[in-house]
Write a protein that binds this DNA or RNA. Structure first.
Lengths: 221, 221
DNA sequence: AGTTATAGTTACTGACCGGTCACACCCCTG
DNA sequence: CAGGGGTGTGACCGGTCAGTAACTATAACT
């Protein structure tokens, strides 16, 4: 219903009389609208992650965001669409994290892969650890044709390709195999983070295990 | 409320006049009760796994089991207790699977560990693949004091210990590290199974990755 | 025959959920 | 000042949920 990055419900074409140009007539109202929508969305993302999709209702989201249900439904056509948007946002954040983690080691794919696992292990425990948001959505939604699930599947396939490419770039003889192994390890790291206290968790060895896998695949490569 | 393996709501002590002895007066009725309770429980386990805890109501469970809600509440004190029992059953089934997979390779812990991963990869896709039942419960329930969650945490800690012991028995120099790495890999395998089609899934390399990790830890051990 | 325990049926409660309607409010703009 | 768009408010609808009550039916045992 709503496009991926919906801004307002009003028409905003280039050259429109609203929300463009420097003086931006109506900019205040438009910004306020955006602010409300974003407030709702940010709140929803946090609640969805912490309490699960089905564990939080639109009423709770709205009131937690300091507004009400009607304002919610003025910004989002349905809860299902909000969930889909939540997953897209999670994918965007993952992409940003990935690029940011990779960047310092440009040209060294092996270090890049290792850095990804190190960053996963050392990930700050800001919000309570609930594992991978995508995977959790996959668990909670059992309607196989839900829009959010398609996003999750695409994202996971994308991550798989990235890891395979990393493996290929570092010169592994069987890059698909190494990439997939790292994929399993990464998924397991996120999943396991959910179940153990941070101070004594198998997660601690994730980076080490990744290095071992990489080393083994390069040794005979 | 109800003990783990509740049989009936009536008093059944040794020497009671009901449901004991060889001729077993009342055995038919007792068996029928057990049958109903088990029918409900089996149905609940399957529905919980396939559609998630929150995705299926007690009414659906009861009618799918060919009975009704009242019979459900005569066998289980609440849905939450049923969920806890479901998790315990999942743990029991996991234990049985583990022992059965381990048994043919008694005395060879390395082969045992490898067999566990091979069995995980080759696990028949009987019911739709929804990953690890325990992990899914962990995702779906956000009340941290829920009885089911404690069972999950204990089970995961138990599996961790088993893998660490396997690693130690096979002579790894750092058994905790290898055991934990295998733990991550195993969790990731279950999680990843959910997201990819069986004919082209990273899951295929799980056993191979496990062997690589073991090999690396034994080589320098 | 009468007792007893188990099971099926219907209807109900109270709470919550997703979603909508109607109306009042406020603030900006013309 | 008048108008209008975005926002807050409360009531409401239809549906689902967990859980309960009361009655009936069916056996089997005494």
């Amino acid at each position: 219903m709503i496009p991926n990055n919906a801004v307002t419900t009003t028409e905003i074409e280039p050259g429109s009389s609203l929300c463009d140009g420097d003086t931006a007539p109506g900019a205040a109202a438009c910004a306020a609208k955006v602010r409300v929508r974003d407030r709702i969305f940010d709140t929803a993302c946090e609640l969805f992650y912490r309490q699960g999709i089905r564990g939080v209702g639109v009423d709770a989201i709205a009131s937690e965001a300091g507004t009400n249900k009607m304002s919610f439904y003025r910004s989002f056509p349905s809860k299902d669409e909000l969930v889909a948007e939540y997953v897209r946002e999670a994918a965007r954040q993952f992409d940003a994290w990935w690029q940011q983690t990779i960047a310092p080691h440009a040209g060294d794919p092996r270090r890049q892969a290792e850095a990804l696992f190190e960053a996963t292990v050392d990930r700050p425990t800001q919000h309570c650890d609930r594992g991978c948001a995508m995977a959790n959505v996959m668990v909670e939604i059992h309607e196989q044709d839900h829009a959010a699930l398609q996003v999750v599947r695409e994202h996971k396939a994308d991550v798989r390709q990235r890891l395979r490419r990393l493996a290929a770039d570092m010169g592994a003889r069987e890059p698909e195999q190494l990439g997939d192994a790292l994929m399993l390890l990464l998924g397991g790291t996120h999943q396991t983070r959910m179940m153990f206290a941070a101070n004594d968790s198998p997660v601690a060895v994730a980076a080490c295990a990744a290095k071992t896998l990489i080393e083994a695949h390069l040794r005979r490569g």
